[in-house]
Design a protein around this nucleic acid. Structure first.
Lengths: 373, 373
DNA sequence: GGAAGTTTCGTTAACGTTTACGGTTCCGGA
DNA sequence: TCCGGAACCGTAAACGTTAACGAAACTTCC
């Protein structure tokens, strides 16, 4: 058990060639004939060669530059995602990661330009939130062709050649929301509503489907209404909900899958049915806290932004370090926050990643409102 | 931004001494006078020296031996914990971890002997489940004195000098169970029971307290009974529950915090009140699945054994690698499993950590029934 | 006062990889 | 024939740390 791992020298010796040639062959650098290259590759495989990352890093002293393209926000989902990324970067033993944040001020504004900027500056990897997957697909493809791996967070960009995706499992989210809704309503009849960002986004459609089918399967006396699309716009959410409440006097519950839960609550209050409505929301932000505490929101599905950030960086770093991905798809289980355990989550959010280690990860901020002038 | 980090040579040069002396001083190896040692330490601090782990590992080629002392079990909590540890060990870039499993067949049997064995063989670190903290306290103290860091999983061993503890947050668990129980019972009156392993174990007492106080705070019409102690023994759980059901005909729900939920369900069935009882359990194992599917168990609090294992190994490895701990206490948020999202968790349990990378982590099994003959 | 031992410290060869540079060959063109 | 330049390959010096080997200087003891 445990003979010493094979090194470049081993390969060279058993081939009667030199370390330099082996190295060039393995990295397909120029200056090696196709014949010897094939022999080297063959021998490396048969000896089970795996590079020693410590030696590699020590020798080259290259740092991996990673661009993180997300939305602006304070004490919000994306701040937490970034914190998770920072934490994970700080916990990398080989301190060879450098993070560049490219933050967009508003949904869909300048996302493509930011991504192009990252590609142009030849970063080694990209973590991105593709709020509108279609508009970014071609840029992500371009990154892949430039051999820059791209990891999506929260929303997937299908058929774009991205390396992987980290998100909360939509099925688990929608189903648990449905199951809770059914239990909370406890045999009542009536209709149940659900708001989504937009049904064209796969994730949101899936959440709806999961919610709908779970409710149908276990609570047949509840009826799921056509989804309300709010596009994360407060006014749109409010307006559509007021309309919804008027049209469906038998409404018993509503599941808000977007961050626009405040206007929904406001609409319910203004329609005077806040206490008759079972409300399940998504995520956890300061404005929502009092509503959970008061019981107006019975539960919220927390999408664990910090964990998403951590996993995204991990996936990217593993790929960059080892050249092979272990998984392309990380589906996190959402957390359930209610009155009882609310404080636990608030406490943990406020713990700002007690960084005793000093600034081991070099960071750069790119304010895109300037960059794109 | 980002001048090159200071090295041993830097320290040596600015002190007019040699690299060897600096090294000896920083590791308090023998052969360096107290005076120069002080100077070196001083200079290292003022230059902000931080060792280059890549170089260290490359040079010494030492592997860290970690003993994992847990309970036996197949498709059980502890199997998942071990899987988590393995996964995390495999994802360490410097492949310098070697894991030795010392598995005890039964609760409390041979735990101390296994721990002593690990200490005797001078492992570099220990992950342990102290099922009976008091009986292990002195052994853990001995390990700490031998400079072997010990990380506890699932149950803490207080005042033992252990490096840290990884567990599910007891407050979050008890509170969410109470909150769900209250919502599910939806205004009903009656009493609610809770079973624990033993109130002497801090974690279990805390879960009870959290359950009790949350229920009192939000659902005052429910009354929490005195906790049932089952010591994870099937017969004891069954017997005590039958008695409980007889004595409290108004029992509306029960929260099982141990793994002994099957006998509780059996007792409820035999007492013919399975369908009148709201049952919330703990963890997720094959025998429990049909009961969740049938609705007999409305929800189970999943303690995320895999995540516990991962975090434990991470904590230990970070300490061994860097000599400083970032956190001593990791409190995980439990997951909530219901009918709706059950399949998601089962699928993820069965994914056996698709290991493409081959056996990079050398493992050793220590069957203690042999070792202790 | 010198042999023998101790304490303190400097030197150097690893570890496995990257990278720059210096050699070979071999071929076409003068 | 000789030169210029590819194309291919070997060599050796880094990278920062560890660990082993000695070389001093200083003690102790006969």
């Amino acid at each position: 058990m445990g003979q010493p791992p094979t090194t470049l020298r081993d390969i060279a010796k058993s081939l009667g060639t030199s370390i330099g040639t082996v190295h060039r062959a393995l990295h397909d650098n120029p200056g090696v004939s196709p014949a010897t290259k094939a022999k080297v590759l063959q021998m490396a495989r048969s000896l089970g060669y795996r590079p020693n990352l410590a030696a590699r890093y020590l020798s080259s002293r290259k740092t991996l530059r990673i661009s993180v393209n997300t939305l602006q926000g304070t004490t919000s989902f994306w701040d937490e995602v970034r914190t998770g990324i920072r934490e994970e970067a700080a916990s990398i033993l080989l301190e060879n990661v450098e993070i560049e944040f490219r933050t967009c001020a508003r949904l869909g504004e300048g996302e493509e330009a930011a991504l192009e900027a990252a590609i142009r500056e030849k970063v080694d990897g990209i973590i991105i939130f593709p709020s509108r997957p279609e508009t970014l697909r071609s840029s992500i493809k371009r990154a892949s062709r430039a051999r820059i791996p791209v990891v999506c967070v929260a929303t997937d960009a299908a058929n774009s050649g991205r390396l992987g995706i980290v998100a909360v499992d939509t099925l688990a989210s929608g189903s648990i929301a449905a199951d809770l809704m059914g239990r909370f309503l406890n045999g009542k009849n009536g209709s149940v509503a659900i708001t989504v960002f937009e049904m064209a986004i796969t994730e949101h459609a899936e959440k709806y489907t999961a919610f709908d089918s779970t409710l149908k399967a276990f609570y047949p006396n509840l009826r799921v209404l056509k989804p309300v699309e709010d596009h994360d716009l407060e006014k749109e959410a409010y307006r559509k909900c007021r309309k919804l409440f008027e049209e469906h006097p038998d409404l018993a519950g509503i599941y808000v899958t977007t961050e626009a839960s405040i206007p929904v609550l406001q609409a319910a209050r203004d329609a005077d049915l806040l206490d008759r409505l079972t409300v399940i929301t998504t995520d956890l932000f300061p404005d929502l806290v009092p509503h959970i505490r008061s019981g107006a929101v019975v539960a919220t599905i927390y999408q664990r932004p910090r964990a998403q950030g951590q996993m995204a960086l991990r996936m990217l770093h593993e790929f960059l370090a080892e050249g092979a991905r272990r998984s392309h798809q990380v589906s996190l289980a959402p957390h359930l926050v209610m009155r009882g355990n609310l404080d636990f989550f608030l406490r943990r959010q406020s713990e700002e990643s007690s960084r005793e280690r000093g600034p081991v990860v070099r960071e750069a901020m790119h304010d895109l409102t300037e960059d794109l002038a």
